[in-house]
């Protein structure tokens, strides 16, 4: 049994999960009431991306430019140059690749105050297949100078990210899933600071660093491993990929000496790579593993099946932590003497 929700047909089960995920559309609409400089743009995905809620409330400040993403980002640049703060939303695959050059040259190069909400990222649009999956955007977008890159874990954190982005100077890329992902947070009573990672669980044996959808599995896995394996797993929510919280990563290296990253993205260029860069810069030995999409085009499937397939759910995360903890890791006696 299916019903029409958000411009696409989902099952009743999906609709039940929607409330938290839909928050961002509401939040943007609320902020729009206080900030007349905010405008919103969509490319015929107003309903699917939830930005249409803003359009219903403020039709004069909402531009649905039709199925023309490159033009949309150019128009957004023009509106920003005219003094507005555009929020632009479309699927991640169209932001980062179809309109990648407009995002880079028109928006980032000119340091424009444009906020991008890229939906349906990673493999979250499972059944749609590879044309609508996007496992490359973090690699592409974080290489654009001046861009801030955020991958919130759920609806509440997305709402926080949207709020924080309004007064954050310059372009911001907020990467979310399809909008139906399970919640990590139970309410909005938590601190969210761009560039500051959040420790979801303390731990001393191993650190799991995740962003976006896999975070919920990471938290569940840590709780399970504590109870059943006696393992102390630190879970870091690295919601901001750029600027990345170097301090949190360096501390994890020093405290736990084992780090595993989980992301709904190709293992090349995304969260895992960003964390690896910090570890390499630090120059300290650390057992390290990246889990994500292993440099292949993801298959069609229900999102939950795909997350399971790529070991991005709690079961997969438990397996990977056990695997890393079971491996020999040569502790360096002269740890503090290096450099």
């Amino acid at each position: 049994m299916a019903e029409q929700v958000g411009g696409l047909t989902y099952t009743i089960l999906d609709a039940d999960k929607m409330t938290a995920a839909e928050i961002y559309g509401d939040v943007l609409t609320q902020i729009g009431g206080q900030r007349p400089e905010i405008v919103a743009l969509s490319a015929d995905l107003a309903k699917s991306t939830k930005i249409g809620k803003f359009g219903e409330k403020y039709p004069d400040r909402f531009f649905n430019v039709g199925i023309a993403e490159q033009n949309m980002f150019g128009v957004a640049a023009g509106l920003a140059l005219a003094g507005f703060v555009p929020f632009v939303s479309t699927f991640a695959v169209f932001v980062s690749m179809r309109a990648g050059e407009q995002v880079r040259t028109d928006i980032c190069y000119q340091k424009l105050n444009c906020k991008i909400i890229a939906t349906h990222s990673g493999i979250s649009f499972g059944q749609a297949g590879t044309t609508h999956h996007c496992t490359e955007d973090l690699a592409i977008i974080r290489s654009f100078a001046n861009m801030t890159v955020i991958a919130p874990a759920d609806g509440f954190e997305t709402a926080k990210a949207v709020q924080a982005s309004v007064d954050w100077k310059g372009p911001v890329y907020i990467r979310i899933g399809r909008g139906f992902e399970p919640r990590v947070y139970t309410d909005d009573k938590f601190d969210f600071t761009i560039g500051k990672a959040r420790e979801m669980r303390p731990g001393t044996d191993v650190t799991v660093i995740a962003c976006g959808t896999p975070l919920v599995g990471a938290v569940d896995a840590a709780d399970f491993l504590k109870k059943n394996d006696g393992l102390s797993v630190r879970v870091i929510n690295m919601h901001t990929i750029k600027p990345i919280d170097r301090e949190a990563i360096e501390k994890a290296v020093m405290d736990t000496r084992r780090i595993i990253t989980f992301e709904d993205h190709n293992v090349i260029g995304g969260l895992g790579s960003a964390v690896a860069e910090v570890i390499a810069d630090l120059g300290k030995g650390c057992a390290f593993k990246r889990v994500g999409i292993p440099d292949e085009f993801s298959p069609v499937g229900y999102p939950d099946d795909l997350y399971h397939h790529y070991k991005l759910d709690s079961e997969g995360i438990i397996d990977t932590v056990r695997e890393v903890m079971g491996k020999e890791f040569e502790e360096d006696e002269d740890w503090q003497d290096e450099f």
Binding site: V39, D60, L79, A82, G83, F84, D106, Y109
Partner: peptide
């Protein structure tokens, strides 16, 4: 506006013109 990559100026101009109207 910073230009150079061809085909970018008219979309930006559309945004500016919409901005003027909105203001």
């Amino acid at each position: 506006a910073s230009t150079g990559s061809l085909g970018h100026g008219l979309p930006i101009s559309v945004g500016l013109a919409l901005g003027a109207r909105l203001k």
